[in-house]
């Protein structure tokens, strides 16, 4: 059986839920082991065990929280040298992208990102051209490094799953302590989390200005259990905080209903929301690519429709 590793990201003691999705997928491919580096790692190891990791290499060392990528690559390189896994799975997150890129160069291992499906340790699938073509990719060498977007796989606990925790005892050399995190800022959001909300409303350039996002928030309150997100263009323009961003760099959402207001549908946005069960799009431009993946498309002015929709939802909910 091949050995499949899951690199489980941990931040502020919180395990990235995608690591449980990856561990679940890894069970189909071989023996599952995980690596988790940073404060809270040992505690998180138990949870990875419940999802199928038989061994979890863990270190609670603060160095992994303080410095970007290089300490992790140092530790992973040592562990890989000793244990020779066949494949390492990462989530497509900020820290993991930095670490996986460096690790690929350090090991000379090929890397594939935006993985949608993993058939075996030699074969995986991704989508190109706005998700219209699925490409089957043959991979060589070991270990292969794969990055999958959040929610690509469904996390399912393994009955009786329990991990043996192996402490990672390497000393991170000074030359790996270079890019330092000196401050952390969280933009506290109210209401349900974007990643978990059953309904997501997203706004793009078509909303014309930051003030109009308030109307989206009002609509979200009217519907209830609804989160508001945004496209990269709007985040870049400073209309809403970074935490709103849905897309390649940003969050992946998979709600029951996704409503796009004034969103054109650039590929880097689509990869973050195309897994939604139902998609509604409102855009003035009838040629907007978002209509190609929408269940209901409305050619019209989002700014006009939002207040009408708030009234309509309120009256129907009574």
């Amino acid at each position: 059986m091949p050995t499949i590793w899951v690199y489980a990201e941990i931040d502020n003691g919180k395990l990235d839920p995608s690591s449980l999705e990856l561990a679940t997928k890894a069970r189909e491919l071989g023996d599952v082991e995980a690596v988790v580096l940073g404060p809270g790692a040992t505690e998180a190891a138990a949870r990875l065990g419940e999802y199928g990791a038989e061994i979890v290499y863990a270190s609670d060392d603060q160095v992994y929280a303080d410095y970007v990528a290089q300490p992790h690559v140092h530790a992973l390189t040592e562990l890989i040298g000793e244990n020779a896994p066949d494949m390492i799975l990462f989530a497509m997150n900020y820290d993991s992208r930095d670490i996986a890129g460096r690790l690929s160069a350090r090991l000379g291992s090929t890397l594939m990102s935006n993985v949608l499906e993993i058939e075996s340790v030699e074969r995986a699938k991704t989508a190109i051209i706005g998700g219209t073509i699925i490409v089957d990719v043959a991979l060589e060498g070991a270990p292969k490094i794969l990055l999958a977007r959040a929610k690509s796989f469904v996390a399912e606990p393994l009955e009786g799953g329990e991990a043996t925790v192996v402490p990672v005892e390497t000393t991170v050399p000074e030359e790996a302590k270079r890019a330092k995190r000196v401050e952390r800022h969280e933009e506290a959001a109210t209401g349900p989390k974007l990643e978990d909300a059953p309904v997501v409303l997203s706004g793009g350039r078509g909303l014309q200005g930051p003030d109009n996002f308030k109307h989206l928030e009002d609509l979200a309150s009217a519907i209830g259990n609804t989160a508001v997100g945004a496209t990269r263009a709007v985040v870049d323009a400073g209309w809403v905080p970074y935490s709103y961003q849905i897309g390649q760099t940003g969050k992946t959402v998979k709600p029951s209903v996704y409503i796009a207001f004034g969103v054109s549908g650039a590929t880097q946005h689509i990869v973050g929301m195309k897994g939604a069960k139902r998609i509604i799009a409102i855009n003035k431009d009838e040629e907007a690519p978002i209509f190609q993946i929408s269940d209901l498309g409305v050619v019209g002015d989002a700014l006009k429709i939002i207040p009408q929709l708030i009234e309509e939802v309120k009256s129907r909910k009574g």
């Binding site: 090929t110 219209t132 073509i133 490409v135 990719v137 043959a138 991979l139 060589e140 209509f291």
Partner: peptide, 22 residues
């Protein structure tokens, strides 16, 4: 180059949606 395209298939298309004009 340690990865290569072994095959490609069109993605399963989302159900063709209805587009209306407001």
């Amino acid at each position: 180059i340690k990865q290569d395209v072994a095959g490609q298939t069109p993605a399963e298309e989302r159900k063709a949606g209805e587009v209306i004009t407001d």
